[in-house]
Amino acid sequence: MSDQPDTPATARPLLADMPGIELLHAMARGEVAPAPMATTTNIRLDTIEPGRVSFRGRAEPQHCNPFGAVHGGWFGVLLDSALGCAVLSVVPQGRWYTTLDYGVNLTRALPPGTEVICTAEVMHSGRTTAVARGEIRGAADGRLYATGQTTCLIMAL
């Protein structure tokens, strides 16, 4: 690898040389650039295990709707990122994935500035599909703020 992190556009070809979990570890080490959305939304990869990942994040005022509440889209980005990376952690070398669908269920309002942990876990991983579920909880108090689920298509490069 070069001294510069790969851009997200080059992350998919890297899967020809490594399984998804290795790509996630390379991102965590800063060898592969995270998705630009992660910077925009103030989220970061926290833990990586086969079939399970977590992100940490903190919604700031720029992530709020006109009423001052954290926008539902912020929850969606955080859950979609964690759910997708959980699936990526079980994708073998030479394959990649794309989201077929995902859903988000908000359970309570999130005060801006509250640090949260989003944990996602693969429930099924087959040859062509994977299913994962996740939740967003307060980092300090464990309060549940949202849940989500996804179905992903796993394909050859």
Score class of each variant (00 low, 15 high):
residue 1 M to T: 11
residue 3 D to K: 08
residue 6 D to H: 13
residue 7 T to A: 11
residue 8 P to V: 01
residue 9 A to C: 05
residue 9 A to V: 14
residue 11 A to P: 05
residue 12 R to L: 14
residue 12 R to M: 13
residue 13 P to E: 14
residue 13 P to S: 12
residue 18 M to A: 15
residue 20 G to I: 05
residue 20 G to N: 05
residue 21 I to R: 08
residue 22 E to F: 01
residue 23 L to Y: 11
residue 24 L to R: 07
residue 28 A to G: 08
residue 29 R to E: 09
residue 30 G to C: 09
residue 35 A to M: 12
residue 40 T to F: 09
residue 40 T to A: 14
residue 40 T to K: 07
residue 40 T to N: 08
residue 42 N to S: 12
residue 44 R to A: 13
residue 45 L to H: 06
residue 46 D to I: 00
residue 47 T to A: 13
residue 49 E to D: 11
residue 49 E to Y: 09
residue 51 G to C: 07
residue 54 S to R: 12
residue 54 S to H: 11
residue 57 G to D: 01
residue 58 R to P: 01
residue 59 A to I: 00
residue 60 E to K: 10
residue 63 H to S: 01
residue 64 C to D: 04
residue 65 N to C: 07
residue 66 P to W: 01
residue 67 F to A: 12
residue 68 G to C: 11
residue 69 A to V: 10
residue 70 V to G: 03
residue 71 H to M: 08
residue 71 H to W: 08
residue 72 G to M: 03
residue 76 G to W: 02
residue 84 G to V: 01
residue 87 V to W: 02
residue 88 L to G: 06
residue 89 S to A: 09
residue 89 S to T: 08
residue 90 V to Q: 11
residue 91 V to H: 01
residue 95 R to N: 09
residue 95 R to L: 10
residue 98 T to S: 13
residue 100 L to R: 06
residue 107 T to P: 03
residue 109 A to V: 10
residue 110 L to F: 04
residue 110 L to Y: 04
residue 114 T to S: 07
residue 120 A to G: 04
residue 121 E to F: 00
residue 121 E to R: 12
residue 123 M to I: 15
residue 124 H to M: 13
residue 125 S to T: 09
residue 126 G to R: 09
residue 127 R to Y: 08
residue 131 V to H: 05
residue 134 G to E: 06
residue 135 E to A: 14
residue 137 R to A: 06
residue 139 A to W: 05
residue 139 A to T: 07
residue 140 A to P: 05
residue 142 G to V: 08
residue 142 G to S: 10
residue 146 A to Q: 00
residue 146 A to Y: 00
residue 148 G to C: 08
residue 151 T to L: 03
residue 152 C to E: 05
residue 152 C to K: 03
residue 153 L to F: 15
residue 153 L to R: 11
residue 155 M to T: 10
residue 155 M to H: 07
residue 157 L to A: 15
residue 157 L to V: 12
